[in-house]
Design a protein around this nucleic acid. Structure first.
Lengths: 234, 234
DNA sequence: AGCGCGCCTTGAAGATTTTCAATCCGGCTG
DNA sequence: CAGCCGGATTGAAAATCTTCAAGGCGCGCT
């Protein structure tokens, strides 16, 4: 069996009760006491763009929460086609299915530099069974993942290319809270939208010409929300 | 708020411990004793094709398990487009999100005659918190729903129309255990695949001409698995 | 500075899909 | 039985996408 491709930047043991993104993370609802119930062998590490967190079929003994950056979940078809079925961002959990002892269902790949926490399955499973709060959090995650999946299908895989790209950009912007956001490669965008890299490029290039998509700091961009929303309607 | 559209054939109070599809249903793992822990005000009823089980935004106080027939979960876009994001069949649970107190996320519509059990939320919630077995079942359902969603995206919304239709037919056949299966309307198939009704019709008509899709008893059909699998590869 | 590499952009031709309109078909109704 | 209705099918033209190929551009490396 293929082993997970984690061989990278190990930052150290985490202190979850002092975590900067605790309000977003899996353990957000744990009470102070819960943290002391067990020793938490949780550590932080990071991946560079393109590195895999795990591959389909892997049976890693951990789940991961994303501290920063973006992780794409990729699913392949026998004929070589593939789709990005979801993108995980800050606070999301990768590898939820491992909690049910299923092998990983996707390839999980860093889209940019990503910081993560590795949480041993055992920790989550124990805490889950003991603390209803964590339990609720977990269900919550399932729900969110599913709602996301449906949205992708309905909004990002329906209609002509221009519409899809517009919706994707609006999504990213919304997810970033209206701020500038990271624009993935054309290939990745295409894989999210079910269109080719070239088509994606043609559309984004046009959006740029129209001034509806402008680059900002570094790899970030901003959009003309109103204009793109227009495209979405018709 | 819109009320659920159930006004139909009420069959009566169910006896879950004697249910014919118990091994598939939500309560499959409950022990005999569990059934006696509470009185189960669960009843059976049915919908005719086209009738709604609930609508997006409804806050029905029940979940439903499908005893027979097919339910489509439909999601609409502001511009009037829509996609079928999943199809529920025997043993599946409709309205899972209600367990988390979220309003329904889709329109749930009968695709043919459907028999259902209505299970009050309270019953599930109580049992869930008391019996780990039911609890595991529930998580299991979430997982399955999510895996389905991903499959739809990867297999049914990717590639040219012929390929998608072929994959859809293979899916249906597999879900029916290789037996003859119910072929939805072209419109519904189109909504699952993200293509127009006409395109769907053209492809299925061609498949019929090729003899890869033949009608069987009543509304049922059978397929040439090998031939359609071929289309899937390239 | 020169180069190579990875990704983006562009064009043109060809293939697919959508659109729009007409017909067809089976079943049901008056 | 004629007529009607809701799908299903078909065709032709127009709109979109994909394919294939050729540059470009920016950036890190030597």
């Amino acid at each position: 069996m293929k082993q997970p491709a984690i061989d990278t930047a190990w930052r150290g043991v985490a202190r979850c009760d002092a975590c900067a993104i605790r309000h977003l993370a899996l353990f957000s609802d744990l009470a102070h006491e819960d943290f002391h119930r067990i020793h938490l062998p949780i550590d932080e590490f990071s991946l560079e763009r393109g590195q895999a967190l795990y591959h389909r079929g892997d049976t890693v003994a951990s789940v991961f929460t994303v501290r920063s950056g973006l992780i794409k979940l990729v699913q392949h078809l026998p004929n070589g086609d593939f789709r990005i079925v979801r993108v995980l961002r800050q606070g999301d959990v990768a590898g939820l299915e491992r909690l049910n002892d299923r092998p990983a269902e996707h390839d999980a790949i860093a889209m940019d530099r990503v910081e993560l926490c590795r949480i041993p399955l055992g920790v989550v499973q124990t805490l889950r069974d003991d603390t209803p709060r964590l339990h609720r959090q977990l269900i919550e995650r399932w729900q969110r993942a599913l709602a996301d999946a449906d949205t992708w299908l309905t909004e990002l895989s329906t209609g002509p290319a221009r519409t899809r790209v517009a919706r994707l950009l609006l999504h990213f912007e919304a997810a970033a809270g209206g701020a500038d956001f990271f624009l993935p490669t054309r290939e990745d965008m295409g894989a999210m939208l079910g269109i080719t890299t070239e088509s994606t490029s043609k559309v984004t290039a046009e959006f740029k010409r129209q001034g509806w998509l402008q680059s900002a700091e570094g790899p970030f961009v901003r959009i003309d929300r109103a204009a793109l929303s227009q495209l979405t309607v018709r």
